[in-house]
Amino acid sequence: MQKKKSSSPSYPRRPGPPQQVRIIGGTWKRTPLPVLDAFGLRPTPDRVRETVFNWITHQIDGDWDQLDCLDLFAGSGALGFEAASRGANAITMIDTLGPVVRQLETIKDKLKADKVRVLRADAMSAARDLAQRGQRFDLIFLDPPYQQDFLAQALPLCAQLLKPGGLVYAESGDRLPFPETAGAEDALPEWLAQWELVRGDKAGMVHFHLLKLH
């Protein structure tokens, strides 16, 4: 007897009802972005993005049209499309899941977001490849799955990918151990030692940080 093919999805699912987030500012303000029902997709909450993009806007004096951006764990695309909505010069979005990448392409086409480029690739491999090819960015978004040590792997690569004066937004389930936020007296871990905390805050279980190189 022929075995019936499974109709289950080829990617892990996230428990709970479907979600959506919205773009906070710019050309596509209030536009909803669907969140794929895949395990590990945990888009940056609207109010956190509003705070973070206010920080960034202040740091760059509002000159979004000068920025080349990299969204290394794109997921829902909330961070990358937010930057595009505000007029960023170019945005590269990278994710490893096929269904996620297809949805990002669908959103890109719907918004006619011509300055957005979507790539399906492993984030770390893609970052190494971009660095080797000499590509540099003004702003890098890092919102990886929590509890998997991705920031410790990604931040050293981001140091090679940033233009002078560039910024990294890093989100995590734990506070990064800067003395300003954690009160730590010990030396920073090696993967964090070359970074300076510009701003940091917490909302619920989300710790979010804006970083630059020393």
Rank of each mutant, 00 (worst) to 15 (best):
R128L: 09
I91F: 06
L104K: 01
R136C: 05
M93C: 13
P177R: 10
T96P: 00
K110C: 07
S125I: 14
S85I: 04
L151Y: 03
L104C: 03
P99T: 08
Q103V: 10
I140Q: 00
A78Q: 03
D138Y: 07
K115D: 08
L130K: 10
A182K: 13
N89C: 13
P156F: 10
S125F: 07
Y146E: 05
A113Y: 00
Q153N: 02
R175Q: 15
G173L: 11
L161M: 12
D122N: 15
D143I: 01
P145K: 02
M124K: 05
Y169P: 03
L79I: 12
I94G: 05
L142Y: 09
R120A: 06
F137E: 02
V101D: 08
D143T: 04
A90N: 11
M93L: 10
Q147W: 04
A126S: 13
A83E: 04
P177G: 11
G166Y: 11
S85Y: 02
A84H: 03
K163W: 12
Y146C: 01
S172L: 04
P156I: 13
L79E: 08
Q153H: 13
L139D: 10
K115F: 11
A152H: 08
D109Q: 15
V116S: 00
A123H: 09
S125G: 15
L79K: 07
F141A: 13
P144H: 03
Q132H: 07
D129I: 05
P179H: 13
K163G: 10
P145Q: 04
L130Y: 12
P145E: 01
Y146M: 01
E185F: 02
G183Y: 01
A88E: 00
E171L: 01
M93P: 02
S172Q: 10
L111W: 13
L79S: 06
P99N: 06
P144W: 02
E171Y: 09
P99H: 06
E82P: 03
A170G: 12
G87Y: 11
V118F: 03
